[in-house]
């Protein structure tokens, strides 16, 4: 897993930031879009990069930080390669989504207060409703929906995902 982590760090190419800043002509008005593109690239907003953006746009780092923390879409902590969104809307909630969430976290070995696995492969989030109430309780892995989940199905799903991860590693 260590090699995976290292290669992730390497994939965060600094030069991309400059291309993004260039694309939006270093305009403060485009700050939100700039941050969105940076997050798409890095999967989160690293502190050094935000400071760099502030320098390049000639505004204070506090201002950039203020914007980055205002919107729920931005994350200042590293996010995993895959995002698992467990639905906790009304329908899923009554159908036992908290058990599903617990199972997901346990299978990934997440500790209290942790939402991302240490190998930066998975991040677990809860969302209010993904519109799949008929399949409750449901969850999404990236763009794919999995319905009528229970603890056993969660375990199978995670095992499969981890297996794919290792296969990808081997390649």
């Amino acid at each position: 897993m260590e090699t995976k982590k290292e290669s992730l760090v390497l994939s965060r190419q600094f030069e991309k930031v400059n291309a993004i800043l260039e694309k939006y002509s270093y305009k403060v008005d485009n700050l939100i879009t700039i941050l969105q593109e940076i997050q798409a690239e890095y999967r989160y907003l690293p502190e050094e990069i935000l400071t760099y953006v502030a320098t390049a746009l000639q505004i204070s780092p506090a201002q950039v930080y203020g914007v980055a923390t205002f919107y729920a879409q931005f994350s200042l902590k590293p996010k995993g390669e895959h995002i698992i969104r467990v639905c906790d809307g009304t329908a899923c909630h009554v159908k036992g989504s908290s058990q599903v969430l617990k199972a997901v976290r346990e299978n990934l070995g997440l500790r209290e207060g942790e939402n991302t696995t240490s190998d930066l492969l998975f991040t677990v989030e809860t969302v209010a409703c993904i519109g799949a109430c008929a399949l409750a309780p449901a969850l999404m892995v990236d763009e794919e929906v999995y319905g009528q989940m229970d603890e056993e199905k969660v375990q199978q799903l995670i095992d499969r995902l981890l297996g794919e991860g290792e296969k990808a590693d081997a390649v």
């Binding site: 502190e47 935000l50 204070s60 506090a62 930080y65 203020g66 205002f70």
Partner: peptide, 20 residues
């Protein structure tokens, strides 16, 4: 024109604080 502080976070979590 230094801007040490700004509003950060949102709603009940809003704070005034320096960057990061």
């Amino acid at each position: 024109n230094i801007g040490v502080y700004d509003f950060t976070h949102r709603g009940s979590q809003t704070k005034v604080e320096p960057a990061f």
